[in-house]
Design a protein around this nucleic acid. Structure first.
Length: 280
DNA sequence: AGCACA
């Protein structure tokens, strides 16, 4: 199922990718070259300095005949190589990718002939002209926000047995629904287009994975969670059944604080487009 | 700001 949107068809002004046929295979003697040695690799330059291998893979993998790609970071600028099944595939990919434009902030892929839209994209961060009708930006959650942070929820509902002298029917204790201990405002000025996956950052130094899982797995539509422990920061990805479920949690748990996160509120974003194409 | 897994 294609829940994550493909990159928008709009563009932004950035240096175009330059693609040229490339191969490490000698081409001086075509006669002795087996057919598999034809030029099946394209060379990609003009990549952002901090491009990830996975980003390039996600960018390329839907192209017909795509087999593999890698990024060489040894030189001054990263260089990408992509291998295709046949020379025809490689050629077609080169044409398809030629002059494609990526921007770092939003990972927009586009043709360079949509200049007007690109200006809007850059100045306004405006997604409305793309396939995404839902704004990635949203107002802070109502109700739970007060001048001093989280405000207590309303009192429990009216008890129909109260005052009747009838002993309440013993009910099984409801399963405790994991809830954040509080909410703290987080700034989330840069977000990506809505998607069925959420990126969670700002989790605090010693975040507890089980606590996180407890909270998110209780959310409607939860599918799976991946936690990424890194030196400085731990981040986490939550995949949901659909964009709607993800969006609800994006809203409802923004800034949530759980015991192991200390006093920081988690920041919930949609992942960068090129790293989140779960199922195109 | 830190963005994986198929």
């Amino acid at each position: 199922m294609a829940s994550c949107p493909a990159p928008p068809p709009a563009s932004a002004a950035a240096p175009p990718l330059l693609l040229t046929p490339s191969s490490t295979i000698p081409i001086d003697n075509p006669a002795v070259r087996p057919p598999s040695d034809e030029l099946r690799t394209i060379f990609i330059s003009g990549l952002p300095e901090d491009v990830k291998e996975r980003e390039l893979q996600n960018l390329l993998r839907w192209l017909p005949g795509y087999e593999a790609s890698q990024v060489n970071f040894k030189g001054e600028h990263p260089m990408g190589f992509a291998l295709f099944a046949t020379a025809q595939h490689a050629l077609a990919a080169k044409d398809a990718l030629q002059d494609m434009v990526l921007t770092r902030s939003q990972r927009i892929v586009a043709d360079s002939n949509t200049y007007d839209q690109s200006k809007r994209m850059r100045t306004g961060g405006d997604y409305t002209h793309t396939a995404y009708s839902t704004s990635p930006f949203h107002p802070p959650p109502p109700a739970v926000w007060g001048p001093h942070g989280y405000m207590a929820p309303p009192p429990p509902p009216y008890d129909p047995y109260a005052g009747y002298g009838v002993p309440p029917v013993p009910m099984p204790a409801p399963a405790p629904v994991p809830a954040p201990s509080s909410y703290v405002p987080v700034q989330n000025t840069k977000d990506n287009p809505p998607c069925n996956t959420l990126f969670i950052g700002n989790l605090g130094e010693n975040i507890n994975e089980e606590e996180l899982r407890g909270l998110f797995s209780a959310q409607p539509g939860f599918k799976q969670m991946k936690i990424l422990r890194q030196e400085r920061h731990t981040v986490c990805f939550i995949e949901f059944e659909d964009v709607n479920s993800a969006t609800n949690v994006h809203h409802s748990l923004q800034g949530a604080v759980i015991p192991s996160s200390g006093s920081v509120g988690m920041r919930i974003q949609y992942p960068s487009v090129f790293t989140s194409l779960l199922d195109i």
